[in-house]
Design a protein around this nucleic acid. Structure first.
Lengths: 211, 211
DNA sequence: ATATACACTGTTGTATACATCATTGTATAT
DNA sequence: ATATACAATGATGTATACAACAGTGTATAT
């Protein structure tokens, strides 16, 4: 795996983003620039640059002269995330499904259906599947928006504190979407994607609001 | 007009963004941090912070160690902008039209229909009308995405070099949308919004590609 | 006891100096 | 003439020092 050269800003961005989406930096927690800088053995400058990007992605709020706070996970925010996904992802799959790499679809299908341990937690695979699909749109606005919802989605999964997040069901649903795509039935694939997201929303809301 | 206190980062952001959307910094032009810093009598720091935000909004590209370049206006980009608007704006108007401030709609209607000089160029009013509508969604992801398309839309208008940008037609179309909203016929309002954006796209593509 | 004034503290905001790298031009070898 | 090596240049990348401000606590006056 070739690790290409990154700027410290990018390193800091990845570092902080991972802490946030994995709730190591919890919602509503305050972040101290200098603390992170010393952890990474860099100056505050790249940290600040990373935080500005994270503010754009709605993962932190910068309160001028007061501090940086991790965005809270409110019911409204969760509703917005799923509303966005429900609007964009089925649209993309219906209109750009023909451009999705068949080989990669087959890879996912093997991964899901084969000897892969279904009880293993692999959020990344779920995210990668959705990423493969929405990148087919080639539309930077749609892609960026969905990437941002992915980050928040991961926060929801972690914050809800569950270890197994309906993974078997998710995989079955993904397989059904892939099958529709391989059959070139993009309307059906879009419909299944919509149902898949609806189930995911239902699950998230139940878990988050049961606490 | 109360001008609330801004950080230099915000001042720089507004300054540079306006230059870009008005094509004072043309597509593909290189931007020099220090030059802008001396123009604003500030250091490079707030300039850099503003540029990072503009990179997120896809108005500039930061080429590490090489420079900052204003994003180009390609056919693909224009297509993406209108695709995004066509997907989001009718959806919002159909689902959130009931939450749009009636008084403000009446204000726009008076503005369009009254003694307002229709031959006057007022891009801002067009943008404000669309802004009023998409803010009704209360969805930060949809709002942010549409704000970004607004910036690019302004670039297209200016770059195409026209002074009168189908303004009378635009106003008539807006009035029709407002009328449907005031009648609480949100499906019709959404349909008219869709047609409005389609016409705008057609107009933009013709002008940009005629050069 | 309450309210006001004011110094204190900790953080972010900004300016500045230096480091680093991509590029360009020049010189040298073949 | 071409190619390679290498120094020069100019921009961004990063570190550091200082300024400015929001919030807090303390002291004082009433």
């Amino acid at each position: 795996m070739a690790k290409k050269k990154q700027t410290l800003k990018e390193v800091a961005y990845e570092f902080i983003k991972n802490k946030i989406v994995n709730c190591e930096y919890q919602p509503n927690a305050f972040i101290n620039e200098e603390m992170i800088a010393s952890q990474l053995n860099v100056s505050r400058t790249p940290i600040r640059e990373a935080l500005m990007r994270l503010e754009q992605e709605q993962l932190v709020s910068i309160l001028p002269k007061r501090g940086i706070v991790v965005c809270s996970l409110t019911p409204d925010l969760i509703a917005s995330i799923f509303e966005t996904r429900l609007l964009l992802e089925p649209y993309i799959i219906e209109n750009y499904g023909m451009y999705i790499d068949r080989c990669k679809l087959e890879d996912f299908k093997r991964l899901y259906g084969g000897d892969y341990r279904k009880d293993k937690v692999e959020f990344e695979i779920d995210d990668e599947f959705h990423s493969l699909i929405y990148h087919a749109s080639k539309n930077p606005y749609l892609i960026k928006t969905l990437e941002n919802t992915t980050f928040q989605n991961q926060r929801i999964r972690v914050y809800s504190g569950i270890k197994v997040f309906r993974v078997p069901d998710t995989y079955d649903e993904h397989i059904q979407i892939i099958n529709a795509l391989l059959d070139e039935d993009y309307k059906l694939a879009a419909k299944r994607m919509r149902e898949h997201i609806l189930k995911s929303r239902k699950n998230s809301l139940e878990i988050v609001f049961s606490s």
